[in-house]
């Protein structure tokens, strides 16, 4: 049989054509995606990676709500220039508790994956309320309202933790019971800073993986 007679058969038979298209376009996924879903080493947390606390998770939701990932990526690529500027390049196992990932695709501002511990809480507070007061030429928008709004109004945190537990994140009953109390008395900006300060702390030079 030659390709030409196969061509004739497929073109005359719509069912076969549809099946052929689906099959050929599935091959890429079968090679690229299916094996990775089954590769445990990629979904095993690095040694110091832990689930987000109630406060950090709330900060993360605020990060998503405010669109920080539009300007900031969260993945240090394995290139010397990036490692020099930001720190150790990102490992797959650091993102196992990220749903969804906030890797981002655009760097208007710097990458934030290793920002944890780089600045003090005070600096973040000033910078978020008015970036120009510390970085003269900054084009980052100001987020003054974060300092006025209560973190506890951001959503039902214990329901979020319970949902994540169903997906396999190891939250204890205690974590979930205390979640609401943890958010009492703090503002959104505090939660966001707590999140920023733990970013990228799941890996340190010399860890395995």
């Amino acid at each position: 049989m030659s390709g030409l007679s196969l061509h004739k058969k497929i073109e005359e038979n719509a069912g076969l054509l549809i099946f052929g298209i689906l099959f050929v376009s599935a091959i890429g996924g079968l090679v690229q995606i299916l094996p990775i879903l089954n590769q445990d080493s990629l979904s095993t947390a690095t040694e110091n990676t832990r689930v987000y606390s109630a406060v950090e998770l709330t900060g993360r939701d605020i990060y998503i709500r405010e669109g920080c990932s539009v300007c900031h990526s969260q993945q240090v690529r394995p290139l010397i220039a990036e490692v020099e500027r930001y720190g150790a390049y990102s490992r797959a196992g650091e993102f196992v508790y990220d749903r969804p990932f906030l890797w981002g695709s655009k760097r208007t501002g710097p990458d934030l994956h290793r920002v944890g511990g780089k600045f003090s809480d005070d600096w973040h507070r000033i910078h978020l309320i008015d970036p120009r007061s510390v970085v003269e030429a900054s084009i980052m928008p100001a987020y003054p309202w974060l300092a006025d709004r209560d973190a506890s109004d951001t959503g039902n945190i214990s329901a979020k933790l319970s949902a994540l537990r169903i997906l396999g994140h190891p939250y204890s009953d205690e974590d979930i019971d205390n979640a609401d109390a943890d958010l009492q008395g703090i503002k959104e900006i505090d939660a966001l800073i707590a999140y920023l300060q733990m970013l990228g702390t799941g890996y340190s030079e010399g860890d395995s993986s």
Binding site: S2, G3, L4, H7
Partner: peptide, 28 residues
Amino acid sequence: WSGWIIVLTLVSLAGVAWLSISIYFSKD
């Protein structure tokens, strides 16, 4: 999964080779 990737990749390559060669160089 390693074997799975190797087989699928090589079989696809061979398939494309056969298809294109047989179309361009078919005797008829």
